[in-house]
Write a protein that binds this DNA or RNA. Structure first.
Length: 265
DNA sequence: ATGTCCTGAAGTTCAGGA
């Protein structure tokens, strides 16, 4: 089974790009982040036309996540359990997590993550990011107790190590490279999750994001912030990982590229 | 590494987020 994660930066603004990539890469499952629309405005029919079942957790203007699957989906969860303790955005939960069980002959659970960016550092947004990491940590621990194959994949909005940036010095003041953000990601991994990039032996410089500004793509000023974190039962089935760098050169590209893993069927 | 893009409300431009 091939499972993709991709922050598309608005599914409607980029629909032809998204459809073209899905058609060519043909993943069995695709986790999309930053769909930037409510459920009613998600281009459901176009994606069903490619053979996908669709589950969304949308939001007006910002955020929003979706899971597409050629296999049936069940046990769908929208939003992480737990209360946001930071007080930020207390009036409305942000749509940043959707999870489903992929009903293949050998099932896999998939959690689709759009972690808060957290900039600027020192504001309630940064506190919200760290609180969200705590909630994800608690949920990952609960999932691990089930001893099932799963991937928690998506935009983690963290640069885990200096090797994950072309120019780490440029990121020292950024929420993505703060010690607290890096520690939260590290703690999550230390629950016993495997980074698919590491399992697949991806070399340093396998970036997944290049800013639209300042010629970041042309200069390869990228960062690696999109990950598949695998449970032990999924890691046992791991076969390969591919980062689709070419997608950054498509017409009307997202600023992120897809990362696709293959698990043994 | 600040050279852009997206959304929505206002009203063909701007604020806010990333």
């Amino acid at each position: 089974m091939r499972i993709a994660t991709w922050n598309v930066n608005s599914v409607n603004a980029r629909l032809p790009t998204v459809l073209a990539w899905l058609e060519a890469a043909a993943p069995d499952v695709a986790c999309l982040q930053e769909i930037k629309c409510v459920d009613e405005k998600f281009p459901r029919e176009a994606l069903e036309g490619l053979g996908y079942n669709v589950e969304t957790h949308g939001q007006k203007s910002y955020n929003g996540v979706a899971i597409l699957s050629k296999h049936p989906l069940s046990d769908v969860r929208r939003g992480l359990p737990g209360v946001d303790a930071s007080g930020y955005e207390a009036e409305a939960e942000q749509s940043r997590y959707i999870e489903a069980l992929i009903e293949a002959p050998r099932p896999v659970r998939v959690g689709c993550i759009y972690l808060p960016n957290g900039n600027p550092v020192g504001t309630d947004k940064f506190a919200y990011k760290l609180a969200w990491y705590d909630r994800l940590h608690a949920h990952a621990r609960d999932l691990l107790a089930l001893e099932e194959p799963f991937t928690l994949c998506g935009d983690y909005n963290v640069i885990p190590t200096p090797e994950d940036a072309r120019n780490p010095a440029a990121w020292t003041g950024d929420a993505l490279f703060q010690p607290e953000s890096r520690a939260a990601f590290q703690a999550l991994r230390h629950l016993g999750l495997a980074d698919a990039g590491e399992l697949g032996g991806q070399p340093p410089g396998t970036f997944t994001f290049w800013d639209y500004q300042a010629g970041a793509w042309q200069r390869d000023h990228g960062i690696r912030i999109d990950f598949h974190l695998l449970s032990p039962q999924a890691a046992d089935r791991f076969q390969s990982v591919e980062t689709h760098r070419d997608a950054r050169d498509m017409e009307k590209p997202s600023d992120h590229v897809p990362v696709v893993i293959e698990l043994e069927d």
